[in-house]
Computed example of a mutant assay.
Amino acid sequence: MTDPAALDAEDKDPVVAEYDVYITPNSEEQQLYVLQYLNRPPDQPFTKATQSQPAELRLKKESGFVEVDIPIDIHHNYNRPAGVRWGESMRKTKGFGQTAFGIASGFERTMPRASNRPGAGEGAPVAAATADDDDNIEEYVAHFEDANEKGHVLNVQTFGGQILKDDGKGPSYMLGTFRHGRPLEGYQLHLTRLNGLVQLRTQFHHIDASAQLEAVSRRREKESQEGAKPAEPKAFLPTVKKSGGDTAAELNQAFMKSANQEQWNKLNYFDEDSQDAYTAYSERLFLPEVSDAPKLHSALTNTQFLDTMSARSNGKGGKNKAPKRTADELIEISDESDEEEETCGEPSLS
């Protein structure tokens, strides 16, 4: 007779679906990242349908910094005077060479050369006034639409983060996509390895720009009172630099310097409902021909698999290795169509 308890346990955990799983091949030319907007509700994605399609995406490949500019609705619930002041701060700081802010710039500030400094070349940027001191603020607010078109208004919100790459020590993430196969084949699950994750948070570059203009204003005021120091030749003594540079502080300083010197690469952004997005989705996230796909075999024997999965706690925060099981206790986990073999080589990811 069938055990009622066994039937009840089986009904509580039924098999509802089965899928054939395929792994797409790795490609050096394809870099796949997942952008996670941590303070954005999942039901409000940045898409064209929600009128918030990203206006620009920038990448510093070597240092791994990513920034995304999202348009702001400047016609509803928007503080126009503040938007003009912050927009002017961004415009002026970028005007004298500031290309990045915060950690993406290595926390470096590009300061303009004073026009009254001896030796300053012609065409050198002149120290700008702060946005609050600009006499044109009221005019920009009065002619808001025209000021926005000319770049005097902060009309984007910037999200930024750094790529968390797969270093081989932590988990390896994969992106799964489903596709219905040929008749009688059912659904297929295709897995593509991710090159990294990017957790994007709101960046306050307009605050950094305002603080930078205030520093420029303070320096300009100081030079107007004390006079700019003339550029004088300086003597230097050559020294031999000691070997090293591998301490945490030195490595961090070198990273900040390289991040500041690295230029942004601007990428084309396609909306999820665009034809380009669908084409890339079909070409890159599926194995083209599944009939020739090699089968994936386990590199562990049944005994090794069960010993790995059956580690149990010893009650002291550690784990004791479970005793090895006999052959009679082993559970067959290989596919019935595979050849009967206890151990195989490394998994093939073709």
Rank of each mutant, 00 (worst) to 15 (best):
residue 4 P to Y: 03
residue 7 L to V: 13
residue 10 E to S: 12
residue 13 D to H: 12
residue 15 V to I: 07
residue 18 E to K: 11
residue 19 Y to K: 00
residue 21 V to F: 09
residue 22 Y to L: 02
residue 24 T to H: 04
residue 25 P to V: 02
residue 29 E to A: 13
residue 31 Q to I: 06
residue 32 L to W: 02
residue 36 Q to N: 13
residue 36 Q to E: 12
residue 41 P to F: 00
residue 51 Q to G: 09
residue 53 Q to W: 06
residue 53 Q to M: 13
residue 55 A to V: 13
residue 55 A to S: 14
residue 56 E to M: 08
residue 58 R to Y: 03
residue 58 R to D: 04
residue 60 K to V: 07
residue 66 V to E: 00
residue 68 V to L: 07
residue 71 P to T: 03
residue 74 I to C: 08
residue 74 I to R: 07
residue 78 Y to D: 00
residue 85 R to T: 05
residue 87 G to P: 00
residue 90 M to I: 12
residue 91 R to G: 02
residue 95 G to K: 01
residue 95 G to T: 07
residue 96 F to L: 08
residue 96 F to V: 07
residue 97 G to T: 05
residue 105 S to M: 04
residue 106 G to Q: 04
residue 106 G to I: 10
residue 111 M to D: 06
residue 113 R to I: 09
residue 116 N to L: 13
residue 118 P to A: 08
residue 130 T to F: 05
residue 148 N to L: 11
residue 155 N to G: 12
residue 158 T to E: 08
residue 159 F to E: 00
residue 163 I to K: 04
residue 166 D to G: 00
residue 169 K to L: 15
residue 173 Y to V: 01
residue 174 M to V: 10
residue 176 G to E: 11
residue 177 T to M: 15
residue 180 H to E: 14
residue 183 P to H: 12
residue 183 P to F: 07
residue 184 L to P: 06
residue 191 L to H: 06
residue 191 L to W: 06
residue 195 N to S: 07
residue 199 Q to D: 05
residue 200 L to P: 05
residue 202 T to R: 15
residue 202 T to V: 15
residue 203 Q to S: 09
residue 203 Q to C: 10
residue 207 I to V: 12
residue 209 A to F: 02
residue 213 L to I: 02
residue 214 E to C: 06
residue 220 R to I: 06
residue 221 E to D: 14
residue 226 E to D: 11
residue 228 A to E: 08
residue 228 A to Y: 12
residue 230 P to S: 01
residue 231 A to Q: 13
residue 235 A to P: 10
residue 235 A to Q: 08
residue 240 V to W: 10
residue 245 G to L: 00
residue 246 D to P: 01
residue 246 D to Q: 13
residue 252 N to D: 14
residue 253 Q to L: 15
residue 258 S to W: 05
residue 259 A to R: 02
residue 259 A to K: 03
residue 260 N to Q: 10
residue 261 Q to E: 12
residue 268 N to R: 07
residue 269 Y to G: 00
residue 274 S to Q: 08
residue 277 A to H: 03
residue 279 T to Q: 13
residue 279 T to K: 11
residue 284 R to V: 10
residue 286 F to Y: 15
residue 286 F to E: 01
residue 290 V to Q: 07
residue 291 S to I: 12
residue 295 K to D: 10
residue 296 L to Y: 09
residue 298 S to V: 01
residue 299 A to I: 09
residue 301 T to M: 04
residue 301 T to S: 15
residue 302 N to D: 10
residue 304 Q to R: 05
residue 305 F to R: 13
residue 308 T to A: 14
residue 308 T to V: 14
residue 308 T to P: 04
residue 310 S to C: 04
residue 317 G to F: 02
residue 317 G to D: 01
residue 324 K to H: 14
residue 326 T to D: 11
residue 326 T to V: 11
residue 327 A to W: 12
residue 328 D to Q: 09
residue 328 D to P: 03
residue 329 E to W: 09
residue 331 I to M: 14
residue 331 I to T: 14
residue 331 I to V: 15
residue 333 I to L: 15
residue 342 E to D: 05
residue 344 C to E: 11
residue 350 S to I: 04
